[in-house]
C-alpha cells in the first residue's frame, strides 16, 4: 500500500467497509506514514462536521397522513397523486 493507493481505500477504511486484506494494509501504511495518518484525521473530522451540520427533519403526523391519503386516493383512481 502506498500513499496514492490510500486515497482509493480511505473511505472504505474510515467507514469500516474494508476487506480484511485491505484493512491490514491500510492500517500498516497509516502507522508508518504520518502524512496519510493526518490526512485520515482531516477527513474524519470533516465527515463528522458534515454529519452534525443537519438533523433529520421530523415529518409531522399531518404531513404523513396527507401524503398517505393522497397516495391511497391515487391508487383508488379517485384523483392524481399530486
Amino acid at each position: 500500500m502506498d500513499c496514492k493507493k490510500i486515497q482509493d481505500v480511505i473511505f472504505n477504511f474510515v467507514y469500516g467497509e474494508s476487506s480484511e486484506a485491505e484493512l491490514l494494509a491500510t492500517r500498516d501504511h497509516l502507522e508508518k506514514c504520518g502524512d496519510c495518518a493526518r490526512e485520515k484525521q482531516v477527513i474524519e473530522k470533516l465527515l463528522d462536521k458534515i454529519k452534525n451540520c443537519e438533523a433529520q427533519e421530523t415529518v409531522t403526523e399531518d404531513c404523513r397522513d396527507r401524503m398517505l391519503s393522497k397516495i391511497k386516493n391515487s391508487l383508488a383512481g379517485e384523483e392524481p397523486a399530486s
Binding site: 433529520q56 404531513c63 397516495i71
Partner: peptide
C-alpha cells in the same frame, strides 16, 4: 417515508415539491 422524505428534501430546492415527490415514490413502490 421519513428516510425518503429527508433524502428528497436534501436533493430538491423547491420545498413545495417534496411531498409530491414522496407520494410518487411510494406509488411506484406499490
Amino acid at each position: 417515508h421519513k428516510q425518503i422524505y429527508n433524502f428528497i428534501r436534501k436533493q430538491v430546492s423547491e420545498r413545495e415539491n417534496i411531498e409530491d415527490l414522496v407520494q410518487e415514490v411510494f406509488l411506484r413502490v406499490f
